[in-house]
Simulated scan of single mutants.
Amino acid sequence: MRMILAATLSIAAFVLSPAPTRAAGSDDSEPPTPTETTTQCEEGTVWDEKTEACIKPEDSSLNDDQRFGAVRELAYAGRHDEALAILATMTEGETSRVMTYRGFLLRQTGRIEEGIAAYERAIAMDPANILARSYYGQLLVQMDEMQMAEAQLDAIRGAGGRGTWAETALAQAITSGVTTTY
């Protein structure tokens, strides 16, 4: 009986412990590490580690994950228009992850209606996309649409997003009125 109780408590502790936080478009909560993309490359180019040169983002030597990393880095650096241009070169098309980041970048550049459409498209493609729901909810906070923002928070929690960056960022935005810029 004690072994069953101990095992149950261990499982409960694991399940109830908060998950690591997540930042926009990434698998960690840390800001992206600046690379040559933001420190040396001219506008409209990204750093390619293989060639050790700044190249056009549509170059076939880059894959979408590399492009996406550059988009995230540029967005964090506040270079939203450049990030949008690179996002447009992604070969995977209008996937949920692309539309999530498109919505974020459009929101940051003040193109609210386009941002809303991008978030809604991301969520329609993947209703469990908690990052899109968090960013959309934060936009709703900015618009003082608190009930709608809380509905996004509920959807995040319903999709298993308790303790994630997405949940934490939106919950804090609802409480404080301050949204994230990364």
Rank of each mutant, 00 (worst) to 15 (best):
D27G: 15
P127L: 14
Q152P: 07
M1T: 08
D81E: 13
D64N: 09
D154K: 15
E114W: 07
G137F: 03
Y101V: 14
C54E: 02
R157D: 02
M148C: 00
R97K: 07
I4Y: 05
A77M: 03
L170F: 09
H80D: 12
C41Q: 00
A85S: 10
A159S: 15
A53T: 13
T37S: 00
E92G: 12
D59A: 14
I4H: 00
G44K: 00
D27R: 13
G25N: 06
A77N: 01
T181V: 15
S176N: 11
S96E: 15
Y101C: 05
V15D: 04
A19N: 05
R102M: 04
N129F: 11
T175E: 15
G110H: 00
A122W: 01
T164Q: 14
I55Y: 04
S17C: 10
R2W: 02
V46K: 01
S29T: 08
S17I: 15
A124R: 02
E36H: 03
M3P: 03
A132E: 07
M148L: 14
V71H: 01
D144W: 02
A13N: 08
E42Y: 01
A85Q: 09
G158L: 07
T45G: 06
T95Y: 08
R102H: 11
T95G: 07
E52G: 12
T100E: 12
M146W: 09
N129K: 15
E42I: 04
G69T: 06
S10R: 01
T35A: 02
T21M: 08
S60P: 14
A23C: 07
D81N: 10
R2D: 07
A77K: 04
Q108H: 10
G78P: 12
T181P: 00
V46P: 01
D28Y: 13
C54A: 07
Q152I: 10
M146S: 07
A83T: 02
A122I: 11
K50W: 11
A83R: 03
G103L: 13
P127R: 11
W165D: 03
A24W: 03
S10K: 01
E120T: 09
E150N: 09
D48M: 12
T164W: 01
A149S: 06
V178H: 11
A118H: 04
I4K: 08
E82F: 05
A24V: 04
R72L: 15
E73A: 08
R157E: 12
I86C: 14
L87G: 00
G177V: 15
I130C: 12
A166W: 00
A117N: 13
L84S: 04
A83W: 03
T100V: 06
Y101K: 01
E73K: 02
A151S: 06
M143I: 08
S10F: 08
A12T: 15
I86P: 12
L153A: 10
A70I: 05
E167H: 10
L140F: 13
L105T: 01
E82V: 09
D27C: 12
E150M: 10
A159H: 05
L5K: 06
T180N: 08
V46Y: 00
V71E: 13
